[in-house]
Design a protein around this nucleic acid. Structure first.
Lengths: 106, 106
DNA sequence: TCAATATTCAGCGTACATGCTGAATATAGT
DNA sequence: ACTATATTCAGCATGTACGCTGAATATTGA
């Protein structure tokens, strides 16, 4: 079961919180421009933070469902979970549909 | 000049942080379903929080550019700023374009 | 001007986020 | 088994977020 449920409020909270930090947005973009997958060490190398700090950012992103990971030998490969980003994009798309015009400011 | 600049990192941070809190997402949806505009008191009435707490959420949303406000007599009308939501939606849309396939995991 | 209504400001306590450092774990290669 | 490599865990200091309460401000109507 990959993730059939996860469309609750908590998911939104986790994802938006994860995206709130510049370093984490940059992690996502970095992985994206690398083709969608990247080793933890490679990602950490991009930042001036201590690598342990990046590790935690990766864990937060994974907990939010924005990344998934798998060991490959002695390194861990993270890769982007587009579906989760789509969840948020769809939430935002709500607001692009013109709302009920019957209730304009009275 | 409505908002020609505001496409920097800080804008993303403010908007994603603002969206990270369930109460603030609910504020946006509430205003949206009310037709796009709503008085502060009306909004506060929706929540079980102390109204001062909601005030602060409204300020955070306004600081993030997701709401704008104007006095109308003795009440303050907040209304939704769709453009700001679009800013974020566009950021997320990046990831829906298939990235450079030349760099697949080697 | 006075009282009522609508909203905001200021300050407090608790909890969590984020950076760090040092120690621990797991795998690969000799 | 031993060492180097790659990553994670644990704990600490600082700062900020979020709820609250009490006081302040602004506008309306008598």
């Amino acid at each position: 079961m990959v993730d059939e449920s996860g469309r609750d409020e908590d998911a939104y909270e986790a994802v938006f919180s994860a995206l709130a930090h510049p370093a984490r947005r940059r992690v996502l973009l970095t992985i994206y421009f690398n083709g969608g997958s990247m080793a933890a060490g490679e990602i950490a190398a991009v930042f001036s933070h201590a690598w342990q700090t990046t590790t935690r950012h990766l864990q937060i992103l994974e907990a939010a469902g924005l990344l998934s990971s798998a060991r490959d030998g002695r390194m861990r490969i993270y890769h982007l979970e587009r579906k989760r980003l789509d969840l948020v994009r769809d939430w935002l798309a709500h607001f692009s549909i013109t709302p009920d015009p019957a209730k304009e400011t009275p």
